[in-house]
Design a protein around this nucleic acid. Structure first.
Length: 425
RNA sequence: GGAGAGAUGGCAGAGUGGUUGAAUGCGGCGGUCUUGAAAACCGUUAAGGAUGCAAGUCCUUCCGGGGUUCGAAUCCCUGUCUCUCCGCCA
């Protein structure tokens, strides 16, 4: 959520930012409701001040035997007026809030302006030693590999749940578990994150806090009976860990790493892009979340990206970093980098991570603040997160890049102590 | 699922219709004392909003929402959460 004061004072900047993100501009509507709201507050507070003043005098009047009937009658009228204004105020604030919740975060100045993914900027590329895009090897794709080696079963997943719910079998399941454990341990030991294992179902207030609701309601699994949503990413429960809290300066930055299953309805997407692991309804992800002081958040964004990159370097999987243009930026983000890993069978890059700075957008929605040493007023913190990383897309690149000419899989060296085998055949 | 109890400031814990945003204790912060520390003593210690250059003034908030009343932390209704007992169950 944007600061209403900021919108009031910089309507043109806000409009420009919204336009760059291809979102609907309702700034004028906000400004009008804001004015209405402040007008009502002025009137109702005047009445309340009167009520408080007179109410405190009544006991004294009674004590000294004065007749209070006129005053009581008069105050009754004041009270009725107050309820009237209170109701009006609630209505206006509800309308205002509803619209505010649909206004996206503004892009940071360093974000390139652009409409589509075509305008994202490649920042850097990393290739393992000896890697070449030119290769005479005939690559099987991950689906063929999964079937041949009996480690992935998409058909049975479809039988028990529906399409997009893959089953990991045998060494495939072990490899997946190894990957998760490796990533958790790595961030824990090498990057100093604190591990959290959160609930996978959260309430709607949490979803509003991170910005999934109200806009993304259709993309999430919802359990009506209990009014709970399946998390699309661990970002949601982890960021909401500190909802409605005031943190102290010396505990920042807070860095969390969390494994979770992620659930996405992916409504409206189908076709070639959806095959195998490329688009699934449930996948595993290790997520990085940071709570930081505002002045450090852009440095911390670079840190998160580099923390995620370290995993790929350790796994020796080719990747590149994209700086997203304004049009490709998500609703809550001010600046994002995507990390894409190379898929030799698809012959293209696959998004395996997205790292974002939300500045105070989520903090304002979720009411997460901190207090500086010696300062009185709490300030909103900045939140960031990044996948570090999602296993599904990563698994595609891993299986394909590590396949041998015989169609078996070498287990990456850093995973071997987790798998206790070094080859899948 | 059934029965009961409860939710107050950073924490503990008073408060059952009228200067109670809230006693008291602990903790935190500042000070006196001390070579330093402790103890003791004194002071201070919530968040949000409206208005204003500011100082300030005013409003809201005692789990959330609604109601009664001139006036609600206190009474009524409702929701959520926590605890105890019973049942069921991994």
């Amino acid at each position: 959520m944007l600061d209403i004061k900021y919108i009031r004072e910089n309507p043109d900047k806000v409009k420009k930012g919204i336009a760059a993100k291809n979102e609907k501009d309702r700034v004028d509507n906000v400004l009008q409701l804001d004015e209405e709201r402040r007008d009502i507050i002025g009137q109702v507070e005047e009445l309340k001040a009167k009520r408080n003043k007179v109410s405190s005098q009544i006991p004294q009047m009674k004590k000294s035997g004065e007749d209070t009937t006129t005053v009581l009658a008069e105050m009754k009228e004041v009270s009725d007026k107050i309820s009237e204004f209170d109701k009006k105020q609630r209505d206006v604030e509800e309308q205002l809030n509803d619209i505010l919740m649909y206004i996206p975060n503004l892009p940071h100045d360093s974000v390139p302006v652009g409409k589509t993914v075509e305008e994202n900027v490649v920042v850097r590329e990393w290739l393992p030693e000896g890697f070449s895009f030119e290769n005479d090897k005939k690559f099987l794709d991950h689906i063929e590999l999964g079937k041949k080696l009996n480690i992935l079963d998409f058909e049975r997943g479809a039988k028990i749940s529906g399409s997009g719910f893959p089953v990991y079998m045998a060494k495939g399941a072990t490899l997946e578990r190894a990957l998760i454990n490796f990533m958790l341990d790595f961030h824990l030991n090498e990057h100093n994150y604190t591990e959290v294992l959160p609930p996978f179902l959260v309430n709607s207030e949490s979803m509003k806090g991170t910005g999934q609701l109200p806009k993304m309601a259709e993309d999430m699994y919802y359990i009506e009976k209990d009014d709970l949503y399946a998390i699309p990413t661990a970002e949601v429960p982890i960021t909401n860990l500190h909802r409605k809290e005031i943190l102290s300066e010396n505990e920042l930055p807070k860095s969390y790493v969390a494994y979770s299953a992620c659930f996405r309805r992916e409504a409206g997407s189908y076709g070639k892009e959806a095959k195998g692991f490329l688009r699934v309804h449930q996948f595993n992800k290790v997520e990085l979340v940071k709570f930081v002081k505002p002045e450090t958040s852009y440095d911390e964004l670079e840190n998160i990206v580099s923390d995620a990159e370290d995993i790929l370097k350790a796994l020796k999987i080719p990747y590149r970093i994209l700086l997203l243009c304004t049009g490709d930026l998500s609703f809550s983000a001010a600046k994002s980098y995507d990390i894409e890993t190379w898929s030799p069978a698809e012959n293209k890059w696959l998004e395996a991570s997205s790292c974002s700075n939300f500045e105070d957008f989520q903090a304002r929605r979720a009411n997460i603040k901190f207090r500086r040493e010696k300062e009185k007023k709490p300030e909103f913190i900045h939140t960031l997160n990044g996948s570090g990383l999602a296993t599904s897309r990563l698994m595609v690149s891993l299986l394909e890049n590590y396949q041998t000419r015989e169609g078996t899989i070498e287990v990456p060296e850093v995973l071997q102590k987790y798998t206790n085998f070094n080859r899948i055949y």
